[in-house]
Amino acid sequence: MVGVRHPWRWVGIAAVLVLLAQLVHGFVTNPGWDWPTFGAYFVSATVLKALWVTVQLTLLGTALGFVLGTVLAAMRLSRSSFLRVVSWSYVWAFRSIPLIVQLLFWFNIGYLYQTLQVGVPFGPGLFSVQTNSLFGPMGAAVMGLALHQAAYAAEIIRGGIVSVDAGQLEAAAALGLPRRRQFFKIVLPQAMRSILPNGANEVISLFKGTSIVSVMAIPELFYQVQVIYGRNGRVVPLLMVATVWYIVLTTALSILQHYLERRFGRGSERHRGQSAVHRLRSGLAAIKAKATESAVTGR
C-alpha cells in the first residue's frame, strides 16, 4: 500500500530550514547582538529584581482582574436589570479607555483628590488618608491593570458561561441544587473549557502589557533594561535580555495552560490523550521493566 505523497511539503520544510539556519547564523556571527553583555546582565541581581516586579504585577493584575471579572459576569447574567446595566457600563467604560491613559490617571490621582475620607456623603468625615500614601506608584499600577483586565475577563467569563448547554442548568435546577452550587459545581467547571484558552491569552498579554507601566517609572523588567542601556548604550543586548525573559515566562504560562485545559477537559472527549510527560514516564517504566526482566532471565 502506498499512502498519498506530499512533495510540496518537503519543499516547504527545506525552505523553512534554510531560513532558520540563516537566522541562527546571524545570531552567532553578527557582533551587534553582543552576547557577552547579554550574558552579563541576563541573571544579574538588578534584572532578576525587576523581573520579580513584573511577575508581581502580572499575578496581582490577573488575580484581582479575574475576581472582579467573575463578579461582573455574574452581574451581567443576573435577573436584575440594575445589575446588568451596571456591569455593562463598567465594561463599556474600561474597554473604551486606553490602558496607558487609565494608568496615568491613577498615577495622578493625588492631583485630583489629595485625601480620601470615609464619612457621611456630603457631610462630616470620620477619618481620612493621604491619597498618595494609600496608593503609591505600584498600587496605582496594580489597580489600573486589574480594572482594565476585569473588563476583558468579564466578557470572557460571560462567553464561557453562555456556551454551557442550558440543559445543564435546567437539570441542576430540577434536582434542587442550591443556586451557588449550580453555578460553581455545574456551570463554571464546564464554562472553564472555553474560558481557559481566552483567559490564558489575556494573562499572557497582561504579562507583556506590564511593560506599559514603565511610563510610571516602576522598576519592572522593561523599565529596568531601559535604565541600564541608557547608562551603557548597549541597547540591543539589553532588549534581548528582556525579550528572552518574556519568552521564557510566556512558555511557562503556555505549559500551565495545557495542563489546566486537560484538567477541565475531563469527560469532554471519548478517548483521553496522554501528555508528553506521561508518555515519557510510561516509556521509561517500560524500559526499566524490560531491563529487570532481562536481568532476571540472565540470572
Binding site: D165, G167, Q168, E170, A173, A174, G176, P178, G267, S268
Partner: peptide
C-alpha cells in the same frame, strides 16, 4: 423564595428527553 422552591424540587424526580447528565462528572 428560590431556596424553598429548590428544596421542594429535590423531592420530585425529573428525567429529561436529552438526559442532561453533567458531562464533567462521572
Amino acid at each position: 423564595a428560590e431556596r424553598d422552591l429548590l428544596r421542594q424540587r429535590s423531592t420530585i424526580g425529573f428525567v429529561f428527553q436529552d438526559f442532561n447528565l453533567f458531562g464533567h462528572l462521572t
